[in-house]
Nucleic acid binder design. Structure first.
Lengths: 129, 129
DNA sequence: TAAGTGTACTATGATTCATAATACAGTTGT
DNA sequence: ACAACTGTATTATGAATCATAGTACACTTA
């Protein structure tokens, strides 16, 4: 289910958070679907349960999953809450990266095209605003 | 010249790299302009010279400055080299962030507008592509 | 030569990462 | 009630990273 790079300088739990977010955003993991248990995933990936728990805690903080003691952890269906703090953070990071992209010579059109491709690839379920 | 957050979990040298990149990309620091010396900046910021050196080494690796032994460190004027490795990396990071932005409900138009604002804010010196 | 520059190396303490080993609390099915 | 599964919490240990300190060397400039 996951591929981890043990030699990477990026912590394992962060890699896990990123992979899981990807799967959720691409709807490979559906809303309210149960994700592997801490111990199961730890066994599968041959890493420590505490590392999984750390990743899951982070995913819960970021609003991607919710956990119920004794039952398991599940994909959070309540996105689009427009958590203003989170939006602010993402926008800041995004601006930093866009600035750098423009700086090294990536064109505006190239960026816009990338956005549109990613948007149409993702369901296209709602076109609000 | 810089404001550092000593309590942040982000390493000081990384904060320095980011700030410096910003100043260079916003052309506050002009091409071939000399940046503060390792020891000078260390004294100003009350941090260790080795930390500055680490930041400068990283900035040199990323192509933002070049250093000459005995003379100093200077802003690299050779951007737009379209270093394919770097472009690839930035594009990957960008796609990850854009995906997340779309996911939490930021609209395509909002993203495009952000790009255009950043582009016109930056000089507008060349409109190639 | 003196004072400035970048660069390199070793060493130390604080912090983080990943691990190990337990323990407790809640749910489910028998 | 019991066994087996879930999430959660705690303490401890070793490895790695971060920031510091101190020292040294090479080069440039006045």
């Amino acid at each position: 289910m996951f591929e981890l790079d043990m030699r990477s300088r990026k912590p394992i739990y962060e890699q896990l958070v990123d992979k899981m977010k990807e799967l959720i955003m691409n709807e490979v993991l559906k809303p309210d679907e149960q994700v592997p248990s801490v111990r199961t995933l730890a066994t599968e990936l041959t890493i420590n349960p505490n590392t999984i728990q750390k990743a899951y805690r982070e995913l819960e903080t970021q609003g991607f999953i919710y956990s119920i003691k004794g039952k398991g952890s599940f994909v959070n269906p309540n996105h689009k809450i427009r958590d203003s703090e989170k939006i602010k953070t993402i926008k800041q990071e995004l601006e930093k990266l866009i600035l750098e992209a423009l700086f090294i010579g990536i064109s505006v059109n190239e960026l816009i095209q990338t956005i549109q491709e990613l948007d149409s690839a993702k369901g296209g379920g709602d076109e609000n605003d």
